[in-house]
Amino acid sequence: MLRFLVAKLTRAFLAILFVVTFAFVVLRLSGDPALMILGPETTPEALAAFRKSWGLDAPVWQQFLGYLGNLTEGRFGQSMRDARPAIDVVMERVPITLWLMLPALALKILLGVPAGVLAALKRNSTLDRAIMTFSVMGYAVPNFVLGIFLILIFAVQLGWLPSSGSATWAHLILPVIVLGTAGAGILARFTRSAMLEVLGQPYVRTAVAKGVPWWRVVNWHALPNAAIPTVTVIGFMMGSLIAGAVVTESVFAWPGLGRALVVAVSNRDLAVVQVILLLVAACMVTSNLIVDMLYGWLDPRTRIPKAGVGGG
């Protein structure tokens, strides 16, 4: 178990380091922050002074080492635009995004998993085909199209719901629906195929031959096995909790991290972009770790090694 954990953590650390390095290099190469922040009419002297004060005049590798050094001390840099710690700029947006994404994740799971199970149980029926059609539509229609469509109907035409902002729970409904349907569609498809695979396994036949009632065959024998692949997909969705809403937040003017990222990128606010990317990477890596733990819990074959190994 320890060996397993150490290997996982090392891999997680390397992944984060890779993201940090990549983001750093790309950001430095993609445009001059001084010009973006101060504007094109600024004098060369002012630009030079700006660069000097932010350390942008040093070679990239020096800047990078300095950045890494700061990271290990828990300093994430200053936002060039707001002149305060980038971490503060980012962290105040996190709850706003989670307030949107957690209900969306719940919707994905509560809608997608049962729909997938139902489709598998009623394979090739009209219900199955209907569920699969909706699920394809769910993830084939881009978020911004669905978002604008919903705004047009429910906000503009009917006037039932607000079209943008985050003031009340009513503001939540449309963006959560937009975010939830795509994920629910993906999950439904995955759950269906996992469930179909499991329902064809000999142990399901054994359960029926034992006289286990069908509902219990599904709940106790099939679902725990089908959950193993489905958890992977849910884990991936958890990983994108933080960053998955860039488009949707823009459409609904939701003041979350996605919006913050768009603004920071267009401003070349390096420190803020880097903190957001770091957070995204950390989130991905953590959810991967959680998935691995869940595997062990769900599947005794990964938790307990086989006693003897045969080999021909």
């Binding site: 178990m1 320890l2 060996r3 397993f4 307990i304 090694p305 190994v309």
Partner: peptide, 17 residues
Amino acid sequence: HFRIRMGGALLGGVKSL
């Protein structure tokens, strides 16, 4: 002889099959 990695256990090591 095949070297088999015994995963999982804390003291898992390599065994020879």
